[in-house]
């Protein structure tokens, strides 16, 4: 036994009691779990949703076996960087700011951001129209970046998950929420709790803040994996797999132009 190998063995043995080691040929995919209809947990504790179906389709296409790793949104990029997973498939927008830390495949869907509030709110989506109001959004998202950059004086309430934003919107703790329009319409407006609420203001999609759609995040320097995901997205777009997943959740094609 050569020395480095022995060290490796000894170390692995030392940590075996405290840790689980990832198998080499398996891809670990970081997903979230509180972002309906893209990802949510069901009664058996599994994550389900559009992101998950896309993950499974891409993995099948690439011929990899994939294991889902549920991760809090807050820690999902650190989780990728520290090796807790090999890719993020969690409706994460491809932005310049994130590209400084990680790399992205091509987009797998794109939808604008929008504001939502209770019917009869009388709000407009300008710094003046939202002055003195409290806007709820998920911490560490493109929506926070936009508000910090363009409406710095509007009071924000930051949440760990999008589900918590909806709970407080219904409870009236926030005056409006700012999030992805598809997530809002399918994850909230179409549910029982969301029936008294409506969109207001324009579509938000400035590339500076909102990027160019949601992509699959990988560590920098893993070009092969990145390109494999990009190619697989292209294939499922062409062979109809994407469409059947899309139609299971949405009435329109969310891939975007």
């Amino acid at each position: 036994m050569k020395r480095p190998e022995f060290k490796k063995f000894a170390l692995a043995a030392a940590f075996a009691a405290f840790a689980t080691s990832a198998a080499a040929d398996e891809l670990n995919i970081c997903v979230e779990g509180a972002y309906p209809p893209f990802s949510e947990i069901n009664a058996s504790g599994d994550v389900v949703g559009f992101d998950i179906d896309i993950t499974n389709a891409l993995c099948a296409e690439m011929g990899n076996s994939c294991k889902l790793v549920q991760s809090e949104w807050d820690g999902i990029i650190p989780a990728l960087l520290e090796g807790k997973c090999d890719a993020i498939i969690a409706s994460m927008s491809i932005t310049e700011e994130r590209k400084q830390r990680i790399d992205f495949s091509g987009k797998y869907y794109n939808s604008p951001g929008r504001f939502v509030a209770k019917q009869g709110h009388g709000l407009t989506d300008s710094p003046e129209g939202l002055a003195g109001k409290v806007i709820g959004l998920q911490r560490g998202t493109i929506f926070q970046d936009y508000m910090d950059g363009e409406m710095a004086d509007v009071e924000l309430k930051l949440y760990g998950t999008q589900d918590e934003v909806y709970l407080d919107l219904v409870a009236g703790r926030i005056d409006a929420a700012f999030a992805d329009s598809i997530a809002i319409s399918d994850g909230f407006l179409k549910t029982d709790q969301g029936k008294d609420f409506e969109f207001f203001g324009r579509d938000y999609s400035e590339e500076k803040y909102f990027g160019v759609g949601a992509g699959i995040g990988v560590r920098k320097g893993e070009e092969d994996l990145r390109d494999a995901f990009t190619a697989a997205i292209k294939t499922i777009r062409e062979n109809g797999t994407y469409k059947s997943i899309n139609d299971k959740y949405f009435e329109v094609d969310i891939y975007g132009g």
């Binding site: 650190p78 960087l81 560490g140």
Partner: peptide, 23 residues
């Protein structure tokens, strides 16, 4: 910090999330 209050830990989490840093 888990109910949106920006206490010491809340600020730590916000800064972490804003810059995608771990700890």
């Amino acid at each position: 910090s888990v109910i949106t209050i920006q206490d010491i830990l809340g600020v730590g989490r916000t800064v972490n999330a804003k810059y995608y840093i771990a700890y």
